[in-house]
Computed example of a mutant assay.
Amino acid sequence: MDLDFKTCTLSDVELLSEVAKETFHETFADTNSSETMNAYLESSFNKEQLKKEIRNHNSLFLFLYSNGELAGYLKVNEKDAQTEFQEKDGLEIERIYLRKEFQGQGLGSSLLEKAISIATDRNKKYVWLGVWEHNEKAISFYEHKGFAKTGSHTFLMGEEQQIDYIMRKELN
């Protein structure tokens, strides 16, 4: 399997918007109303919002290509771009998504390893992320990779409040 990471730039915003909407919808559409889902997709993954996020020098988006096909993407944040904590020693993995047809091939591990590599290169002491309390597949994956639940926070899905577990992995 030939894997390649590509940094997303402003010229990639249309493709990023498409893959972000697609993967978020695939992951959470079954557990949310279509109205709530559509409103969230439009507010969070529209081109203007993504351009703003790409322009933030404390955030980084990476596409993952598998054998030349776009398989998924990763977004990491540091410093004031982090959605919580904003500690200099931490790197947030805000988004880590794979298209459905690429799941089950070890590519989630590749995305996670890339995020950890970025954190290590930037001398971070830990990585952290938020994962929905009902996403047991993801929680199990992160626990298997050495993450531990350290708290929770509220995630707004439209008007609906949902609970995300905060999970953290200490780095050497």
Rank of each mutant, 00 (worst) to 15 (best):
H153N: 08
L98N: 03
K137M: 01
L3Q: 02
Q162V: 07
N135L: 02
F85M: 15
E101D: 08
A138W: 10
E113W: 00
I96T: 05
S140V: 00
E170F: 04
S44C: 12
E26F: 13
H25N: 15
H153K: 06
E69V: 09
A148Y: 00
Q162S: 06
S33E: 02
E160W: 00
L16I: 03
T36P: 08
C8I: 06
H144N: 10
E113F: 10
E159N: 15
E84H: 13
F147Y: 10
E53Y: 03
K125D: 13
N67P: 04
V131I: 08
M157C: 04
T83W: 03
N46Q: 12
E170Q: 12
Y165P: 07
L41K: 06
F155K: 13
E87I: 14
A20W: 03
N56W: 03
E53P: 09
A71L: 06
G130E: 08
N123R: 04
E113V: 00
E69N: 14
L129C: 14
R99C: 05
N172E: 11
N46L: 05
Q49E: 13
F147C: 03
N58L: 07
N32S: 02
L50D: 01
R122K: 15
S140Q: 14
E133T: 08
T9Q: 08
W132A: 09
T120G: 02
T150F: 05
H153V: 03
Q162M: 12
E92W: 07
T27Y: 12
Y126D: 03
N67S: 11
L50N: 02
Y73L: 06
T27G: 09
W128F: 09
R95D: 06
F45K: 14
F147P: 09
E22S: 12
G151Q: 09
Y40S: 05
W128Q: 06
L111N: 01
T7Q: 14
K88S: 15
N38P: 09
N135Q: 02
M167C: 05
I116N: 01
E42S: 14
K145A: 04
E35P: 12
I116T: 04
I166T: 12
K6N: 03
G72R: 08
E22R: 00
K79S: 15
Y40D: 02
L74E: 05
G158E: 06
Q161H: 15
D2Q: 15
K47H: 07
E94L: 07
A115M: 05
K100P: 00
Y126E: 08
K124M: 07
Q86N: 14
D4N: 11
L16C: 08
Q86L: 00
L62R: 15
S109W: 04
N38E: 15
E136C: 07
H134T: 13
L64V: 05
W128M: 01
H134F: 15
H57I: 15
G151V: 09
L15Y: 00
T27V: 08
I54K: 08
S110A: 05
H25V: 00
R99W: 09
H153R: 06
E133A: 09
L16H: 03
N58G: 10
S33Y: 08
L107Y: 01
S17Y: 04
F85I: 13
K88T: 14
R99F: 05
F102N: 01
E22H: 00
M1I: 14
D164C: 13
T83F: 09
M167H: 05
V13T: 11
F28A: 04
S59H: 11
L98K: 12
